[in-house]
Write a protein that binds this DNA or RNA. Structure first.
Lengths: 238, 238
DNA sequence: GATTGCCGGATTGTCGGACAATGCTAGCGG
DNA sequence: CCGCTAGCATTGTCCGACAATCCGGCAATC
């Protein structure tokens, strides 16, 4: 063994990602979904997409499979694939799940590695910056979720982080329908900053309580924002 | 609305699941992997599989995608798909992740729904029964994992349960290589029974400690059983 | 009038073949 | 010993096709 690698470390961070056609299709669909161009429930027809995107149906099919695996779409055998529609129950479940993971991360603050903690601080700073410069709603939520992702990162478990990521994906999906994101970004920043301060001060208990409160509140806000827009869809006229 | 449905309720429980060809292929591959017919690292060649299973390559491809999503295989672009090989680091991570989820479930014992608690008791009883009748190693681990799945079920969050399931899948995968499952099934039963007793008695703290200890121990046992069997595979003769 | 049987269009599931792009290996020449 | 090149194996993507299934409507039946 031991091929010649004199300066491996210098190149350690270099990475390239091969972009397959499928990847591009997935990316485009993801964008359209998050952008609200494809509202929840929209059927994703294979032939039509293939023609529109000028790729073969096989490619579209594979991309749709990826979307389903990602939680952005639902597939019913022999019926087709649709943009995922989240009901209040799903929102609640996402809330419960992420509470478990983020709380686990938070409790590990004292023993977490320095980079993991730094990531939380960095995410917080970035959120503050974004909130200040008054960015788009999507950017705001992205920055906000980055903080929570950093909290999940405190677990220092790739699997838990990945799980948290899928949850955040669902949240972004739910929020895609709601354009009127709450404007209280300032208050949000303050709340998170307080959370981190408590952590830095070693008052983990209080931080946990704060986080739990925050998550409960966030869930309520989300449900309130879109709870009634999705219940029973009585769109059938006639 | 309200079409005429006089006796809808009578049919409420009826369900059928369409079995697509892809499903069958996935099932067969899963079986082969768990059975050890396809050891970790085995390449899953598309054409060869297609010919062997007498299905088209498209179908195999889709099945492989499902396996990857399930965590049973890894796919490297332009190189192919292989049966997943778990390194010690992965084992450790699975351990951390499931600890978080199962602990969360356990802490919810007092407030969990009755069916959720009943599931734990049932799984425990089943494990004891299986251990008594001296079943196969695979059945034993399945019954064992069912207990832990029931613990995860205490969270009563479908998403967390699903996440736990993928973790258990990985554990089964890792254990597939190890035929010589620890024989101390009796002791295992005892340990879990004690855990549940503590829960029933409301001594949650002690139960948590017990579970944590059990999980740590299990991880050590797994690492010890296969830690050295998977490192560098020097199979190239010539 | 409600239920059932049947038909036609739309869509998905699966197939087979085809070809370019990529990765791997071995041989060739310097 | 090293780099280059050619060749082979395998995957990525495309195309066209057909059966299976779903859905809505319409006629037939009790």
């Amino acid at each position: 063994m031991s091929r010649s690698q004199p300066d491996r470390r210098a190149y350690e961070r270099l990475r390239i990602e091969p972009v397959s056609t499928v990847d591009r299709v997935v990316e485009e669909l993801r964008r359209a979904v998050f952008e609200g161009e494809l509202p929840p429930g929209t059927p994703l027809r294979e032939v039509a997409l293939a023609e529109s995107l000028d790729v073969s149906r096989s490619t579209v099919r594979e991309a749709l499979g990826a979307l389903v695996a990602e939680g952005l779409a639902d597939r019913v055998p022999n019926k087709g694939t649709q943009v995922r529609a989240l009901d209040p129950e799903a929102i609640h479940d996402v809330g419960r799940a992420r509470t478990v993971i983020e709380m686990a991360g938070l409790e590990r603050w004292p023993v977490a590695s320095e980079p993991a903690r730094a990531r939380v601080r960095a995410a917080l700073a970035e959120f503050a910056r974004v909130a200040d410069t008054g960015a788009s709603a999507a950017e705001l939520t992205a920055a906000h979720l980055a903080i929570h992702a950093a909290l999940a990162g405190l677990t220092e478990s790739p699997r838990l982080e990945a799980m948290a990521d899928t949850l955040y994906t669902e949240i972004k999906l739910a929020l895609a329908s709601v354009d009127r994101i709450r404007r209280n970004a300032g208050e949000q920043v303050h709340s998170h900053a307080g959370l981190v301060e408590l952590l830095e001060a070693g008052r983990t208990e209080e931080a946990a309580a704060e986080l739990r409160h925050h998550l409960d509140h966030a869930e309520q806000a989300m449900l309130g924002s879109l709870g009634w827009t999705l219940t029973d869809g009585d769109a059938s006229g006639s």
